[in-house]
Lab assay of single mutants.
Amino acid sequence: KSEEHWTCVVCTLINKPSSKACDACLTSRP
């Protein structure tokens, strides 16, 4: 599942699959 985009639970930004934290608010990926 690491190839899928993911949505930040805090700010709802859709992040790149390679991101380990949100690009906007830096919250860790769930």
Rank of each mutant, 00 (worst) to 15 (best):
K20R: 08
P17V: 08
I14D: 13
S2M: 15
T7H: 08
R29D: 08
S28M: 09
E3M: 11
R29L: 08
A24C: 08
C25A: 01
L26V: 08
S19E: 08
V10M: 11
N15L: 01
S19F: 06
K1W: 01
K20M: 12
V9M: 14
P17R: 07
C8M: 02
S2T: 13
H5V: 03
D23G: 09
C22H: 01
K1V: 06
T12K: 15
I14A: 13
V9E: 14
E4A: 05
I14Q: 12
S18I: 11
A21H: 10
A21G: 05
D23N: 07
C11K: 09
L26I: 08
C25P: 01
T7I: 05
C11M: 03
H5P: 06
R29P: 14
D23S: 11
P17L: 09
T27L: 04
C25H: 01
D23C: 09
L26Q: 12
K16Y: 03
C25T: 01
K20C: 08
C22Y: 00
I14L: 07
R29W: 06
D23L: 09
K20G: 09
S19C: 04
V10S: 09
E4T: 11
E3W: 05
K16H: 04
V9W: 08
C22S: 01
V10Q: 04
V9G: 14
S2A: 09
K16R: 05
T27K: 07
C8R: 02
C25I: 00
A24N: 07
S18N: 14
C8Q: 03
R29H: 02
I14N: 15
E3Y: 05
T27M: 13
T27Q: 08
N15S: 02
K20N: 08
A24K: 14
T27I: 07
V10F: 04
S2I: 06
H5R: 04
C11R: 03
S28C: 12
L13H: 15
K16G: 06
C22K: 01
V10I: 02
C8S: 03
S19W: 04
V10E: 07
T12S: 11
K1M: 05
A24W: 03
L13P: 09
V10N: 08
P17F: 02
K20F: 10
W6Q: 09
C25V: 00
S2V: 05
K1G: 01
S2W: 04
E3I: 12
T12W: 10
T7Q: 11
N15M: 07
S2H: 03
T7Y: 10
C11W: 00
D23H: 11
D23V: 08
K20P: 13
A24Y: 12
T27R: 08
D23A: 13
S2R: 08
C25S: 00
A24T: 06
A21M: 10
V10H: 04
S19L: 10
S2Q: 14
T27Y: 02
T7V: 05
R29A: 14
P30G: 14
L13V: 14
S19I: 10
P30T: 12
R29S: 10
S2Y: 00
K16P: 13
I14W: 06
V10K: 13
K20A: 12
K1A: 05
D23W: 05
C11V: 00
L26F: 09
S19H: 06
S18W: 07
H5Q: 08
A24E: 11
V9I: 01
C25F: 00
V9K: 15
N15C: 00
P17G: 08
C22G: 01
E4V: 01
S2K: 13
N15R: 02
T12H: 15
S19K: 10
V9Y: 02
L26K: 15
V10P: 02
C11Q: 01
C22F: 03
K1T: 04
T27W: 03
S18Q: 11
S28T: 11
W6A: 02
E3S: 10
C11T: 03
E3T: 10
L13N: 15
A21L: 07
L26G: 14
C8A: 01
V10T: 05
E3F: 12
S18E: 14
C11P: 08
T12M: 10
T12N: 15
L26R: 13
C8W: 00
P17M: 15
K20S: 07
C11N: 07
V10D: 14
A21Q: 07
C11I: 00
P17E: 13
H5I: 06
L13K: 12
W6H: 04
E4R: 04
A24V: 04
T27G: 08
A21D: 15
S28W: 05
K16W: 03
N15F: 01
W6I: 14
S28A: 13
L13T: 15
P30L: 04
V9F: 06
E4H: 10
T7W: 02
D23Y: 12
C8D: 04
T27P: 02
S18P: 09
C8E: 03
L26E: 13
T12A: 13
A21R: 06
P17W: 08
K16F: 09
W6P: 02
K1R: 01
W6E: 06
C25M: 00
A24L: 03
I14Y: 05
L26D: 12
I14K: 14
I14R: 09
K16Q: 05
K16D: 10
C22R: 01
H5G: 04
S28H: 02
V9C: 12
S18A: 11
T7P: 04
L26H: 12
V10G: 14
S19Q: 10
K16C: 03
E4F: 05
K1S: 00
A24S: 12
I14G: 11
H5A: 07
K16I: 14
C8H: 02
S2D: 01
R29G: 11
I14T: 14
L13E: 15
C25E: 02
P17C: 04
T7C: 02
S2F: 13
K20L: 14
E4Q: 06
R29I: 02
L26C: 11
S18L: 11
S19Y: 05
K20Y: 09
T7M: 06
K16M: 14
V9P: 06
E4I: 12
W6L: 03
E3H: 04
N15T: 02
R29Y: 04
D23F: 09
E4Y: 02
V10W: 01
A21T: 09
S28V: 10
N15D: 05
S19M: 12
